[in-house]
Nucleic acid binder design. Structure first.
Length: 535
RNA sequence: GCCCCGGUGGUGAAAUGGAUAUCACAGCUGACUUCGGAUCAGCUAUUCUGGGUUCGAAUCCUGGCCGGGGCACCA
């Protein structure tokens, strides 16, 4: 519908959804208002009931038949409702989640996962094939810190992630406090890089034990991550690790050094971001180990080979903006086309009321801990554990997705546990009520009358495809969240004032109910929010 | 110091340069208890600040104040 109006007025016009009192669509025409109104009347014909000019605005009210037509489409198209095809034939990779083995997964990773998953689904709705991947740091200082502490404790067999998290916290503390320990950890770090890259070089019993501890630790971490991803509805097509990327990364950067892209400075290999208005970053340390920058270069090459794509999106926290700016600047000198198609989507920082999250300070709410807390809360009303989990996941995801991806979230544990009001469960509950009506089927005694005018909920359903298109285009799930909240509210108002079953307009209202149910189901799916069968 | 974000009711947010700034939470008032009450209806703002651009600014430009993040061997 919006498309038809756009064609009538010309592509540069901004078409808005005004306050309900002004109609279904509005275009600001200014001096040209009369002309625009004329074009709309002519091109849309009897699809419009009223075209009015108020203070330069052209307000359009759709004819009841046009509203009914869109509702019928929502009803008939079912799961296809709201899909479109601007990206048909494209392959787009989306990297997100990115928790690091040997560290506990915390709520920051939850944010990346929730936003990344929704962005992936929005892109899929635009017709593209999405390949999901996640990138974890399985080598590097954090690993050395954890393994150093585990070895001090003579741990031969890692049994759970908590053990790893605690070891990391301890290793991290001594690193900044104890000079001897710091040196031991640095040495261990370099050895881990070496052994992981060349396992055949593990000659002594001790080295083989270290390698085994590393492998086992990584696996334990990944198992935990996969469990959480599954709860959140994500399954990655590819899991990449730092250890995969160090070798190609180092090769490419050393090659770039020879070409003058990188420079040597104090024994390190650096990129002078200043030549592009950025800052200098170290790519290879004085000890010869690669930094995050070099690993990302390596990863870009690996992805290029394994997931050739038209576009590559990377979702991470906003604190990495600087890193990505420099990394992409360097990459654009090495592989311009790859840099060109790579897009960094930064999400806001998640902070506690007590300050920034840090896995080093130990004041972490782990992802698992948070999910369990919310499940416990949801269980009060939902004895069925599956449903309690669906409600909890919906509550958490809503909290993250309702905000623009770039903005920060101050995480108030107390408030996030509330399942009422402007929340995921509110949307889920509205859908449950609609489905309940539909479950009664066509057994009513009701009639086939039509109401005098379309219901408010119907006028809202008409806009769904436009909202999805805009959310997908701007990679902004929050636009969809806003819309669905409004939709649920309109549905609840409809539900409170209109009897469906047994009413004179039963058939009509049942179709509205199905159209709402399809719209809400599809919308929640795009957000990655589960749809419980009952609550 | 330099570079990025951000500042909207008591709180958390929304608003592709357009109308009367939209929601929710908390608070107060009321409804109904039906196809499931996790419901509905009603009541509450110098959009941090000074200047500018514009027919029109929460939005764009600029100065200031406040907060967060980043800035060479972490990720």
């Amino acid at each position: 519908m919006e498309e038809r109006i756009r064609k009538a007025v010309g592509s540069d016009a901004t078409i808005r959804r005004p306050l309900p009192a002004f109609g279904d669509y509005s275009v600001y025409g200014g001096e040209r208002a009369k002309e625009i109104a004329g074009a709309i009347r002519e091109k849309l014909g009897n699809a419009v009931q009223k075209v009015e000019i108020v203070k330069g605005f052209v307000n359009i009210t759709l004819a009841p038949e046009a509203v009914a037509f869109a509702v019928a489409e929502a009803d008939a198209q079912d799961t296809e409702w709201g899909k479109f095809d601007v990206n048909a034939g494209k392959k787009i990779s989306v990297e997100y989640g990115n928790p690091n083995p040997f560290k506990e997964i915390h709520i920051g990773h939850l944010m990346s996962n929730i936003i990344g998953e929704s962005v992936s689904r929005l892109i899929e709705a635009s017709g593209a094939v999405v390949v999901r991947d996640t990138f974890g740091g399985d080598v590097g200082p954090h690993v050395a810190k954890a393994l150093w502490a585990l070895r001090k404790d003579k741990v031969a067999e890692i049994t759970n992630v908590k053990q790893i998290g605690e070891a990391y916290a301890r290793g991290s503390n001594v690193y900044s406090e104890d000079e001897t320990a710091k040196q031991e950890i640095d040495t261990l770090n370099a050895r881990i890089y070496e052994l992981v890259a060349h396992p055949e070089k593990a000659e002594t019993e001790e080295e083989r034990a270290l390698l085994k501890l590393w492998q086992h630790g990584r696996e334990i971490s990944m198992e935990e991550f996969r469990r959480i991803f599954a709860k959140l509805g994500t399954r990655f097509d590819y899991e990449f690790f730092d250890s995969d990327t160090t070798e190609p990364g180092l090769r490419v950067v050393r090659d770039g050094l020879a070409k003058g892209i990188f420079e040597e400075s104090d024994g390190a290999i650096i990129y002078r971001g200043e030549k592009k208005g950025l800052h200098t970053l170290v790519f290879i340390t004085g000890r010869g180990t690669p930094t995050y920058e070099t690993k990302d270069i390596g990863l870009a090459f690996i992805k290029e080979e394994r997931i050739p794509s038209d576009e590559a999106i990377i979702v991470t926290g906003a604190e990495q903006k600087g890193h990505f700016a420099v990394f992409l600047a360097a990459l654009s000198e090495i592989a311009p086309r790859v840099a060109e198609k790579t897009k960094h989507v930064a999400h806001g920082l998640l902070s506690l009321t007590s300050g920034k999250m840090s896995s080093r300070l130990g004041n972490v709410i782990t992802a698992t801990g948070l999910i369990e807390d919310v499940i416990a809360k949801a269980s009060e009303k939902n004895p069925d554990p599956l449903i309690a989990e669906q409600v909890a996941v919906g509550a958490i995801k809503y909290m993250v997705l309702r905000q623009a991806p770039g903005s920060d979230i101050i995480f108030d544990a107390e408030k996030s546990l509330s399942l009422e009001g402007d929340s995921g469960p509110y949307l889920q509950y509205a859908l449950v009520r609609a489905k309940k009506i539909l479950a009664y089927g066509e057994n009513g005694e009701g009639g086939t009358d039509k109401p005098p005018a379309p219901y408010a909920i119907e006028r809202l359903i008409v806009h769904y495809p436009e909202v999805v298109a805009r959310a997908a285009h701007s990679l902004a799930p929050n636009l969809l969240v806003n819309y669905l909240t409004e939709l649920a509210s309109a549905w609840n108002a409809f539900y409170a004032t209109e009897q469906v079953l047994g009413s004179p307009e039963e058939a009509y209202k049942q179709r509205v109910t199905r159209a709402f149910a399809h719209t809400m189901t599809n919308g929640l799916h795009l957000l990655g929010i589960p749809t419980p069968s009952k609550m």
